[in-house]
Computed example of a mutant assay.
Amino acid sequence: MSFEVLKPGHFSCIQDLGRVGYQHLGITTGGPMDEHAFSWANRLLGNSPNVAQVEITYGVLSLLAETDAMIAITGADLDARINDIHVAPWFSYSVAAGDRLEFNTPLSGLRAYLAVVGGFSATHKLGSCATVAREGIGGITGQGDYLTKGDRLNFDPHAHRSRATVPTWAIPDYDAQLALGVVPGYQAAQFPDDELEKFFSSSYEVTKNIDRMGYRLSGAAIDSGLDGIISEGICYGAIQVPGDGQPIILMKDRQTIGGYPKIGSLTALGAAQLSQRGPGASVNFYPITLYEAMLQRRLFGVP
Rank of each mutant, 00 (worst) to 15 (best):
V60A: 14
L78P: 00
G26S: 06
A130H: 10
W169I: 14
L180E: 00
E35M: 12
G258L: 12
K262N: 01
L299N: 09
F300I: 10
G26C: 03
M1W: 11
R134Q: 10
D193Q: 13
H10Q: 12
A115Q: 07
E135G: 02
V60T: 07
I263S: 02
T67G: 10
D99F: 06
A41Q: 08
P167D: 14
T131I: 06
I257C: 10
K149P: 01
V116S: 02
F91C: 12
F191H: 03
T67Q: 15
N154H: 11
I222E: 03
G243M: 09
L110P: 02
I56M: 01
D156K: 14
L64P: 11
A188F: 08
E232A: 10
A52E: 04
W90G: 02
L101H: 06
Y113N: 03
Q187K: 08
E195W: 05
I222T: 00
A112P: 02
I137H: 06
F300A: 12
T74A: 06
G150P: 02
E205L: 01
S94K: 13
T123E: 13
D16P: 04
L196D: 05
E135W: 05
G150M: 12
S62P: 00
D84P: 00
Q53Y: 00
D253G: 07
V132I: 15
